[in-house]
Simulated scan of single mutants.
Amino acid sequence: MKALSESHYWATNKKKSKETDQLSPFKVLVRKEVSDHVHSWRFILLLALVLLTFFASLYISMSNIRASFSNVNDPDHAFLYLKLLSATDGSMPPFHILMSFLAPLLGITMGFDAINSEQNSGSLTRLLAQPVYRDNILLAKFYSAMLIIATLFISLTLLMIGGGLFFTGVRIESQEFLRIIGFSVLTIVYVGFYLSLSIMLSVAFRHASTSALTALGIWLFFTVFYPILVNLAIRAFLPDAAYLTQGEKLAYNELIMDIMRVAPGQLYSDGATTMLMPSIRSLGPMSMEQLSGAIPSPLPLRESLIIVWPQLTGLLAGSIAFFALSYYLFMRREIRS
């Protein structure tokens, strides 16, 4: 019996050591980064702000959901769960508008000191002295942050659906569920865009304060100053609208919308509005001939996805471009103790 117990003990320890040896350096780095994010005070404070915004928007939507549901003039009045994310009484903006401001802050907060803080503290040099590839470090920084962000927004989505089911007793339709999931995916990609930007800046700049201020400056420029500059440019260079034909007005309005969509916030707002409001048929200007005879009714999910697809691919392309640039800079960077 003693021999059997000893053999069982050694077999168990051997199995545990084998599992530990099979744990790749990438998984170890991901676990470490997730733990650092979850236990950091700045992430906890920003998470509390996002949760407070979510519950405040949900409370206001619940308070006005009866009036929104009974408004037959609204083509989207039958989509109860979409109204929970888009309805408001005017006291505060709806949730998707607030997320266009909070999501960049979440991405910047989780990535502005991803590389430079570890290099300044000397931990990056000790980490690279181990059998760990450089690309594993950068991938672990991005993957762990995106894992936390995806978990957060998927949990908020399920919490919103559960709260709506508990308080209203109305069963959610499959189209509503898929639209809400699409909105969550769009929000995750939007946060990932600013996360890639902040990681790239953390590689490019030596100090964390410089990368944080640069990322915040880029966000403020596209959020506040870029629309102002576009309006000033329109007044200075485009002719007076009173002397234009209808076709020229449509062409100029389409040009203006294309210029405005350079801003990531505009792409996110267009995509979120289309996913949460099925009655939206176009994101660009339309002529009277196109509007004549059109019945205000919700679009199928497939057609809404076709409208949103350029916005989603634009945010994805920007995220991939910034991450590729940070990868290039980090692989060519000389790191010394």
Rank of each mutant, 00 (worst) to 15 (best):
L305C: 12
R171G: 11
A242E: 06
Y252A: 07
Y194P: 06
S319W: 15
G192F: 03
T274K: 07
L197D: 01
R206D: 13
F221G: 04
M160W: 00
F322L: 15
I60F: 12
G314Q: 10
L45R: 06
S7C: 03
I154W: 02
F177P: 05
Y252Q: 04
Y59V: 11
Y268R: 02
S91Y: 01
I180V: 15
F166E: 11
I65L: 14
L51F: 10
L46I: 09
E33M: 04
S57M: 11
M275Q: 05
R206P: 03
L291E: 13
T12P: 06
G163N: 14
P278E: 15
P278A: 09
F177V: 05
K16E: 05
M288T: 00
G111L: 08
S91M: 09
Y190D: 05
L139Q: 02
L186T: 14
T12H: 02
L23A: 12
L299T: 14
I181F: 00
D258R: 11
G247H: 05
L244Y: 01
L4D: 03
E248I: 01
M257W: 07
L98T: 15
Y226F: 14
L283S: 03
E254G: 01
S117W: 04
L255N: 01
K2H: 02
L238Q: 13
L128K: 00
P104D: 08
A272C: 07
I218C: 04
L85K: 08
F79Q: 07
S202P: 07
N73K: 00
P75I: 15
H37I: 15
T214M: 08
T313F: 09
M331C: 03
T168I: 14
V170M: 13
A129Y: 15
S209W: 11
L85Y: 14
E334P: 00
H39W: 10
T214K: 05
I115T: 02
G318A: 05
I306T: 12
I148Q: 05
D270C: 12
A150C: 01
I65N: 11
L301Y: 10
E176K: 03
S292N: 07
I259E: 03
R31E: 05
I256S: 09
L299V: 10
S144A: 15
R134K: 09
I228E: 09
G192T: 01
M275S: 08
H207A: 12
F112G: 04
Q266P: 04
L128Y: 09
N73F: 04
T151P: 04
A114L: 00
R31F: 14
M110Q: 09
I181V: 14
G217D: 03
A236T: 11
P285Y: 07
V191A: 01
P94L: 15
N231F: 00
S202L: 09
L244F: 07
A78L: 07
D21M: 04
G314R: 11
I307T: 12
I148T: 10
T273C: 15
H207D: 04
G111P: 01
I154C: 03
E254N: 03
Y327H: 13
I115M: 08
A67H: 12
F142K: 00
L291S: 08
D21P: 00
G162Q: 00
L124S: 11
V170S: 06
L165F: 09
K249Y: 08
M260T: 09
S174I: 15
W41R: 00
F323D: 02
I149L: 02
A272P: 06
V72G: 06
F69P: 06
D113P: 08
